[in-house]
Each structure stands twice: as C-alpha cells, then as structure tokens.
Design a protein around this nucleic acid. Structure first.
Lengths: 230, 230
DNA sequence: CGCTGTCTTGAACGTCTTCAACCATAGTGG
DNA sequence: CCACTATGGTTGAAGACGTTCAAGACAGCG
C-alpha cells in the first residue's frame, strides 16, 4: 500500500484528484528486482502497466544477427512497456533491471480504467508518447550518421544534455555503461568502442570515471560528432 | 468546404458525432502540392495540424554530415508533423510532396480544441502515436542490423508487409523509390544500393518494375535479411 | 542537338569487424 | 592463502565491407 503523498509526487499520476489518488494507492503494486534480473522477456504476454519507482530499467532486444540492441533506459517515474499495452498483446523487447529497482504495476484493466476516466491521464500518456517518439527519432538520426566515432559522440552528448551536470573539470555524464553496452547502443562491436574510447581517454576528450563519463570540453566532442569522423 | 461524408470516412475523424463533423467541415482547409513541392521545412514554426488526403508525403531530414535521412512516408488519412505540434514549436524535419498531394490542415488552436473536447479524438491520437513509435522502433532495429544488404532487404519486407500485394510472379511492393531514396532510407550510399540491387536483379531476388519492386520469392529475401549478409 | 537527372561500373582507400590472445579484477571454494 | 573461474577491458593482425571519386551509359526534354 503506497503513501498518497508518494503517488502525488509521481508526474504521471499528479493532478488526478484525491479520489483517484486513493484509488491508485489501493491498486499500485510494488515489486523489487535485483540488478540483472529480468522483468519481462520479448514475446511475453503483456497484461500489466509498468513504471520505474526507483533504480533503472534497460529495455533491449536481441537482433536476428545475435547482437543486442539497447532500445532505451528508463529511470524514476518513467513508464515502460506501455506501447505494447496499447498496441499488441506481447512485449516486443526485454526489460532488465540495470540497477536494483522498485517497479510499480497496474493490471491492464486498471490502466485502461484510469485512462478512460481521466482526460488528464490521457494527456499525460500523449505527452509521454510524444517524448518517446522524439527520442526514438533522434536515435534513428544517430544510427544514420556515418561513423562509429560520430555515433558514440552523439550518444554521449544526448545523455549529457539530458542528465549531465557541471563539475569542476567539465561535464559529468552520470551513466554507468560497460563498453559492451555502449556498443549495443550505437550498434557497433565492443572492440571498436574500446579503441575509440581509449583514444579519447588519451586525447583527453572523454574520461571514464567510475560513476559515469567526464567530458572536459563538450564543444570538442561536438566537433567529433559532426565531422564524418576524425 | 468538405463533404461531411468524406470527413466521416477519415479514420482519424470518424465516430466523433454529427455536430463535430460539421464543425470539422467548416474548419478543415485543403491545399494542393505538386510532386517535389515542400510543405514545410525543418525549423519552420509549426502552428498547423497536417493530414494527407490524397497522394504521398515524404518526411526527411538533412543530417549534419550532409546526407539525407528519410524518416517516413505518409499516405492517405495519415497525420504528419503532429509530434511537433504537441512537443515543440518548430518542425524537426522537412515535409515534401512525394506525389501530387492534397493536404488537410487545422490550426493548432482548432486541433487542441478537438482534442480537449473529444476523448475519442485523444484515443485516436494515442493509437497513432503508438503505431508511429512501433514503426520507429522497427526502424532502429533495421539500422542496427549489420550490413547494407540486410537493411535493404528488411526495408523491402516491411513495405511488402504493409502495402504489398500478390500478383502473378510474386509479391509486388508498390512503392516508387529512386536508388537515392532507398539509400536515404537505409543510411547507405547510392552506389552501394545500386550494386546490391542490380545483383539481386541478376539473381532474380528482387526486380525493379516501373510501379515498384517485384519480389518473386519473399522467403529468399527473408533469408538475405537474416544472414549477416551473403 | 545538348542538357539534366538517374542509373551504372571500376578501382583505391579507409573503416569496422572478426578472431585470437592477453591482462586485471573480483568472487569462490578448497 | 591460493588456485580457479568469470567478467570486463585491451591489443594486434587479417580481411570483409562500404565509401569515395571518377568516369561513363542512358533516358527524357528543352
């Protein structure tokens, strides 16, 4: 049973009125997942609405070629697997706890009930979908760009823009990604990513810290992102 | 002034009630664009809702590297530029008439009024966004796949699934794309596309007809799409 | 006819992948 | 404590693949 005040602080559920809040408190179920645990697999029937409460969820997919493609990461307050709930009856991708997670769920019926009864909730869904679509379009653009180097640079800049913060020494991008995960994000081989990023390390373009990546001079990285490569 | 019966047959505007239909008939404006004409440019302020009535619209974007990236094609009854209307204030891409087009428009205010007043309209938007997101995710998957050959094959198969029809001799995919446009869809060079597709022509895998592409044996093409390449 | 646009082919080059080996670290069980 | 294993990172060399540039074919159209 969740605290009404907690529910009210979730952007997706705010402004729905007190009655709905208590209704939600009675329905929302919280599940914990340890890092690396699978929340759902591609092909599983989707009959629940999922939202990250704490931690981080990775949504990825195995391509036909056997490579992993990371579609997106979801953090606090973000809903995932939602498209499948509206669209189809099975999940099109896997969801894994990238860090220890608390995940809130509603049944499909409860989710639809919420949507039907509350125009504000529908607006919230539209806004979310819009942002997701925007991000996905941006993603297509990155993948369309020529070189791996350019793609990694763009990806880092996107994260920098979204969650980066200024520290002394430059911009810290607080995302913990293995080289393998970077490779799965930009659709390249791990070895290629390593070669590029260790060169960057030497050149002082991007430093790998233990809490993310440090970009001393974002403009220099932008130059790399633009140039075909170089 | 549009015919109410016409409006009612547009999926996006059906089931909104007679009163709304006549309201729409008074607001919807129809504009014609000749093939190759630009409907809007990236960066233009977006204060209108656009929908294809007849013809086909190409939405594309110039990448930093100077290459064109085709984001999507929109046909009869499909809304385009809608994300920008919800999200930002300028278009993130260009829209060009790929064939002679009739385009329906509403002002932003009218669009929002429609959305606010009609839960059915909002549901329709959600459904559209969901489909678009699905398609865009599929697009990311295609671009993530290793080789150019595999990407072209997948793209053709997607079109075959969406608009293909059976004719004697195989499946006809009635999309008229120049080699350059195919290249812009799969993010490769025109020369590469030509080399691959003329090989396919020789091998009998895909034949370029004047009204689209003919795939004699879709399963063979699927095999090409799957194999890393070869 | 020359012009323009799309399509086509060839050869050189560069990038990325592939495969193989190796290092570092952390965790496990004897 | 150490050997053992797993995981993530790292480097090198060979080769495939795609791009790039340059040239030419072919059609429609003034």
């Amino acid at each position: 049973m969740l605290d009404p005040a907690t529910v009210r602080r979730i952007p997706r559920f705010s402004g729905l009125g007190e009655e709905t809040e208590t209704w939600l408190c009675g329905r929302l179920r919280l599940t914990r997942y340890a890092t690396g645990t699978t929340i759902f697999y591609e092909g599983d029937p989707c009959d629940h609405f999922y939202m990250v409460h704490t931690g981080e969820v990775k949504v990825s997919k195995m391509l036909e070629s056997g490579r992993e493609l990371i579609l997106d990461f979801f953090g606090k307050g973000e809903a995932f697997g939602e498209v499948a709930l509206m669209d189809g009856d099975t999940f099109p991708a896997n969801a894994v706890a990238h860090q220890n997670c608390e995940v809130l769920t509603l049944t499909r019926a409860e989710y639809l009930e919420l949507l039907e009864g509350h125009p504000a909730a529908a607006r919230s869904v539209i806004r979310d979908l819009t942002l997701r679509l925007h991000a996905m379009r941006r993603r297509v653009e990155v993948l369309g760009e020529g070189g791996v180097q350019s793609r990694i640079a763009q990806m880092l800049l996107i994260y920098a823009r979204n969650v980066g913060r200024e520290v002394d020494g430059g911009t810290l991008v607080p995302v913990q990604l293995s080289r393998n995960e970077v490779a799965s994000l930009v659709c390249a081989r791990m070895e290629t990513v390593i070669r590029i990023m260790s060169r960057w390390q030497k050149e002082g373009l991007v430093r790998t810290a233990n809490d993310g990546f440090l970009v001393p001079n974002p403009d220099a990285l932008k130059a790399v992102a633009l140039g075909n490569d170089g």
